[in-house]
Amino acid sequence: MTDAPPLVLDIDGTLTRPGGGIDPRVFEPVREWPAPVVLATGKAFPYPVALCTFMPIDERVIAENGGIAHVNDEVLVHGDRQRTTAAIEAFRDAGGDLGWGDVDLVNRWRETEVAIRLDADEALLRRVATEHGLEVVDTGYAFHLKQPEMSKGLMLERVAERMGYEPSDFVAIGDSENDVSTFERAGRSFAPANADERARAAADVVLAGAHADGTLDALDRIQS
């Protein structure tokens, strides 16, 4: 297919199996996609870069909910980790716990935001976020404390420009509220059956298949 659109793909819940981990069935169709692919995730910057390396595809990524990206040998940074660090210190001083243990591999390489376990004190976290001019996003896998003016969708605008595309040229697939901003800018959007309510409401198409099954179905539909 020579006129395939570029893709912007979430990872967790979209390229994964229900029990977690990348579904290896997505490797070939993503690797062989005849247009550029951008991986857009809430995970720390090194994770999507590594996934691109091992697929392998070009290292076009949006990470940390739009806080940082890589495209065409350029690193784009939007978020300010100092703001979130101050808020997390206040959260801990008030008795909050990030929940990842002493060796926090979830945040060790995170540059622009902080991720907190879903069993943390949500009310306290949201109060501290408000006091520091930040917001909390629930991706279904963690709470993310970040700047309200950063999102996957806003970073897609910057990435698309450097690739010579408009955001509306992209087809987006994602499953969580942090994908809504991408859906709002992409030309077409798909949510797998496991998607949360906000993603389902924002998507053009809600698929019958969940997780990678839904994504593989979407890729077939786009090419048909």
Rank of each mutant, 00 (worst) to 15 (best):
S151I: 11
A201L: 00
L145G: 13
V205G: 01
P192H: 03
L154D: 11
V171D: 00
L125Y: 10
A203L: 05
E149I: 11
R162M: 10
V206D: 02
A172Q: 04
L216K: 00
I173F: 12
E149R: 12
G140Y: 08
H132C: 02
L125H: 11
T215M: 13
Q147Y: 09
A191F: 09
A160W: 03
G209L: 10
D119I: 10
G214W: 02
K146C: 14
E122L: 10
E131R: 11
R126E: 14
L156D: 06
T182L: 15
A203C: 05
E166T: 10
L145K: 09
E135V: 15
L134E: 08
H144P: 01
G209P: 11
E131H: 03
H144C: 01
E157Y: 03
G153Y: 10
A199D: 01
A191S: 10
P167S: 04
A123I: 06
A195I: 01
E161S: 13
T215Q: 11
G133P: 09
F143S: 11
E184D: 15
V136W: 05
G209N: 12
L134W: 09
D196R: 11
A120N: 09
P148T: 15
M150V: 15
A201H: 01
L216V: 00
D138P: 03
R126S: 12
K152W: 01
Y165V: 03
D169Q: 06
Q147R: 15
T139M: 04
R185C: 07
H144A: 02
V128T: 14
G153Q: 07
R198Y: 13
A201P: 00
T215V: 12
V206R: 02
T139I: 06
Q147P: 07
Y141C: 06
E197T: 14
M163G: 13
G133D: 08
Y165T: 02
H144D: 04
M155N: 04
D119Y: 12
E157I: 14
R127G: 12
R117D: 10
S181L: 07
G187F: 01
Y141I: 09
L124A: 14
G164A: 09
K146I: 15
L145T: 14
E157L: 05
S189F: 04
V136E: 05
G174T: 09
A203Y: 04
A160D: 06
G140Q: 09
G209T: 14
I173W: 13
S189W: 03
F143Y: 15
N178H: 09
T215W: 12
L124Q: 11
M150N: 12
R185H: 08
E122H: 13
E166S: 13
M150R: 12
T182F: 03
H144I: 01
A160I: 03
E149F: 12
L118F: 00
G164R: 08
K152H: 02
A193P: 07
F183I: 00
F183Y: 02
A208H: 02
F170R: 00
G133S: 10
S189L: 04
D169M: 05
R200C: 14
D138Y: 04
N194I: 15
F190Y: 15
H211P: 01
R200Q: 15
L118D: 00
R126D: 10
F143I: 08
L125G: 13
D121L: 02
R162Q: 14
H132N: 03
S189R: 04
E197N: 06
T139N: 08
V128M: 06
